[in-house]
Simulated scan of single mutants.
Amino acid sequence: MYAEANRLCREHWGVEFAGRIELVKRPWRRYNGVCRYSKSLTPNGIEWDVAIIMSEKRNAERTREEILSTLLHELVHWRLFTEGLKRGGLQYARSIARDDSPEFVRECQRVGASFSHTIAAQKAAKRYGGQR
Rank of each mutant, 00 (worst) to 15 (best):
V15A: 05
R30V: 00
H12V: 03
A18T: 14
H12Y: 13
Y37R: 10
Y31P: 00
S40Y: 06
W13K: 04
C9R: 10
K39N: 06
Y37L: 09
N32Y: 07
H12E: 10
V24G: 07
V15R: 13
E16F: 00
W28Q: 00
V34R: 15
C9V: 03
G45R: 00
A18G: 15
G33I: 04
E16I: 03
R26A: 13
N6C: 10
H12K: 03
G45Q: 02
T42P: 09
E22Q: 15
Y31E: 06
W28A: 00
V15L: 12
L8Q: 12
R30S: 01
C35S: 13
V34E: 08
L23I: 13
G45I: 01
G19C: 08
R10L: 09
L23S: 07
R36M: 09
R30G: 01
G14W: 05
L8Y: 07
E16C: 04
P43T: 02
N6G: 12
T42N: 03
E16V: 02
V24Y: 02
S40I: 08
K25C: 09
Y31G: 00
R29M: 02
W28Y: 02
G33M: 06
E22C: 09
V34L: 13
K39I: 02
E47T: 14
E47Y: 13
R10V: 04
V24T: 12
T42W: 07
N6A: 05
Y37D: 06
R29W: 08
N44V: 01
A18D: 15
E16P: 01
W28K: 02
N32G: 11
P27H: 14
Y37K: 09
L23V: 10
T42L: 05
E11F: 02
E47V: 14
R7S: 12
I21T: 11
L23A: 04
E11D: 08
V24C: 04
G14M: 02
N32M: 04
N6S: 14
V15Y: 10
C35R: 06
A18P: 09
G33D: 09
V34C: 05
L8D: 06
G19T: 03
R29S: 03
E11M: 13
E47A: 14
K39M: 11
R10E: 10
E16K: 00
G33K: 04
W13N: 00
R10T: 05
Y37Q: 14
Y37W: 13
F17K: 08
R26N: 06
N44M: 09
R10H: 09
S38K: 11
P27D: 12
E16G: 06
F17D: 06
N6Q: 10
K25G: 15
V34W: 02
R26Y: 08
I21C: 15
E22Y: 08
N6E: 15
S40G: 06
R30M: 01
R29E: 03
W13S: 00
V24R: 13
N32P: 00
R29G: 01
E11K: 14
G14A: 05
G33C: 05
R7V: 04
V15W: 08
L41W: 08
V34Q: 10
R30D: 00
R10M: 04
R29C: 01
N44A: 11
N44F: 07
F17C: 08
K25V: 05
L23F: 10
V34P: 00
L41R: 13
E16W: 04
R20H: 14
G45M: 01
C35I: 03
I46S: 02
